[in-house]
Amino acid sequence: MAKTKRDQDREAKHKEIVAAARALFIDEGYEATSMSRLAATAGVAPNTIYWYFKDKDEVLVAVLDAEFSASVEGYVLLSASNPTDRMLWVASQLKRVSRLVSTVHSRLEKSATINAWHDQFHLLSEEMLRFELQQAGVAPDMIEARVKISVFTIEGLLAHPLPEPEKRAICAALLSVS
């Protein structure tokens, strides 16, 4: 069934709100962004946001979904590059949105919505890591441990910046077969 003009307008307005939220959450932070500031930036009345989203956490999830979708598209484009480059690219993408990452972790215990998104994010990203490790020839009995170590490593790289050669060596070691 074709979309009506009203459906198209609703979808466009939803995207505008998400784009405004993304910019504000990354530049100013989630906590510093009020719903009225978000509405003003998106060019809508404050109550309009609630026609599209239940609350601010639902807006954050929409931003996170948009970021994740864009990152997965970029990741797929890197499929011909080596696994170390792909892992470093993932870390750089997370670093780029580090304010969002921090917000998610700070809201886990406060928001069932954010907690559910976080769990789903880890399921998907860990599945991608499993695939990378299988493709790299890591022994099947070592994959689960390497997945967890990789997650901890990427989170560590976000919290503790290192020079590029050190990051590359760490990622290469995680993906090595030996």
Score class of each variant (00 low, 15 high):
Thr4Tyr: 10
Thr4Pro: 11
Lys5Met: 05
Lys5Leu: 15
Lys5Ile: 12
Lys5Asn: 11
Lys5Gly: 05
Lys5Trp: 04
Arg6Asp: 12
Arg6Leu: 14
Arg6Pro: 01
Arg6Phe: 12
Asp7Trp: 08
Asp7Lys: 14
Asp7Tyr: 13
Asp7His: 14
Gln8Gly: 14
Gln8His: 15
Gln8Met: 15
Gln8Thr: 15
Asp9Leu: 14
Asp9Ala: 15
Asp9Pro: 02
Asp9Val: 15
Asp9Gln: 13
Asp9Asn: 14
Arg10Leu: 07
Arg10Thr: 08
Arg10Tyr: 03
Arg10Gly: 00
Arg10His: 06
Glu11Ile: 05
Glu11Gln: 14
Glu11Cys: 06
Glu11Thr: 10
Ala12Gly: 02
Ala12Glu: 15
Ala12Lys: 13
Ala12Met: 11
Ala12Trp: 14
Ala12Val: 10
Ala12Phe: 13
Lys13Ser: 09
Lys13Glu: 09
Lys13Ile: 06
Lys13Met: 14
His14Lys: 07
His14Ala: 00
Lys15Phe: 06
Lys15Pro: 00
Lys15Tyr: 00
Lys15Asn: 06
Lys15Trp: 02
Glu16Met: 12
Glu16Asp: 13
Glu16Asn: 09
Ile17Val: 07
Ile17Glu: 05
Ile17His: 03
Ile17Cys: 01
Ile17Met: 11
Ile17Lys: 02
Ile17Thr: 02
Ile17Asn: 04
Val18Ala: 04
Val18Arg: 07
Val18Ser: 11
Ala19Val: 00
Ala20Arg: 02
Ala20Leu: 09
Ala20Gln: 03
Ala20Trp: 01
Ala20Asp: 01
Ala20Ser: 08
Ala20Ile: 04
Ala21Trp: 05
Ala21Tyr: 01
Ala21Arg: 03
Ala21Cys: 09
Ala21Gln: 07
Arg22Lys: 14
Arg22Ala: 15
Arg22Phe: 12
Ala23Cys: 02
Ala23Arg: 12
Ala23Asn: 04
Ala23Trp: 03
Leu24Tyr: 02
Leu24Val: 03
Leu24Asp: 01
Leu24Glu: 00
Leu24Gln: 09
Leu24Lys: 05
Phe25Tyr: 14
Phe25Ser: 07
Phe25Ile: 01
Phe25Gly: 00
Phe25Ala: 06
Phe25Trp: 04
Ile26Met: 09
Ile26Arg: 13
Ile26Pro: 03
Ile26Thr: 09
Ile26His: 10
Asp27Phe: 05
Asp27Leu: 04
Asp27Cys: 07
Asp27Gly: 09
Glu28Leu: 07
Glu28Met: 10
Gly29Asp: 04
Gly29Ile: 04
Gly29Phe: 10
Gly29Pro: 04
Tyr30Pro: 06
Tyr30Met: 02
Tyr30Asn: 03
Tyr30Val: 09
Tyr30Ile: 02
Tyr30Thr: 07
Tyr30Lys: 05
Glu31Trp: 05
Ala32Pro: 11
Ala32Trp: 08
Ala32Ser: 11
Ala32Met: 13
Ala32Tyr: 09
Thr33Met: 07
Thr33Pro: 10
Thr33Cys: 10
Thr33Lys: 08
Thr33Arg: 10
Ser34Asn: 04
Ser34Tyr: 01
Ser34Val: 06
Ser34Leu: 02
Ser34Phe: 06
Met35Thr: 12
Met35His: 04
